[in-house]
Amino acid sequence: MPNHVSIQGFKGSFHEVAARQYFGAEPELLACATFAAVVAHVVNGSADAGLMAMENSLAGSILPNYLLLERHAIHITGEVYLPIHQHLLALPGTTLADVQAVHSHPMALRQCGDFLDRHPHWKLVETDDTGHSAQLLAETRTPGVAVVAGAQAAAQFGLHILAPAIHDDPHNYTRFLVLQRAETVLPDPDADKASLYFYASHAPGSLAKVLTRVAAHGLNLSKLQSCPRPSQPWHYGFHADVEFDDAGQLRALLTDLAPVTEELRVLGTYHRGQWNTAEGPSARVAQASPQLLA
Rank of each mutant, 00 (worst) to 15 (best):
H15K: 09
Q21L: 12
Q21P: 01
T34V: 01
F35C: 14
A36S: 09
V38A: 13
V39H: 10
V39C: 06
A40D: 12
N44F: 05
G45H: 00
A47T: 02
D48A: 12
L51G: 07
M52L: 14
M54L: 15
L63F: 08
L67W: 04
E70Q: 15
I74T: 14
G78C: 02
V80Y: 05
V80M: 15
Q86L: 09
L89I: 09
T94C: 02
T94F: 07
D98I: 03
V99F: 03
V102N: 12
V102A: 12
G113D: 02
W122D: 08
W122T: 03
L124G: 12
V125Q: 15
T127S: 15
D129R: 00
G144R: 13
G150E: 04
A151P: 03
Q152W: 01
A155L: 07
L159S: 00
L162Q: 03
D168F: 00
Y173S: 14
F176M: 08
V178N: 12
T184L: 11
V185G: 09
A194S: 15
L196P: 11
F198M: 06
Y199E: 04
S201N: 05
G205R: 10
G205W: 11
S206P: 08
S206G: 11
A208Y: 11
V214Y: 08
C227G: 04
Y236D: 06
A252Y: 09
T261R: 09
T269D: 14
G273P: 03
W275G: 05
A278W: 01
V285Q: 13
Q287M: 06
P290F: 09
L292S: 11
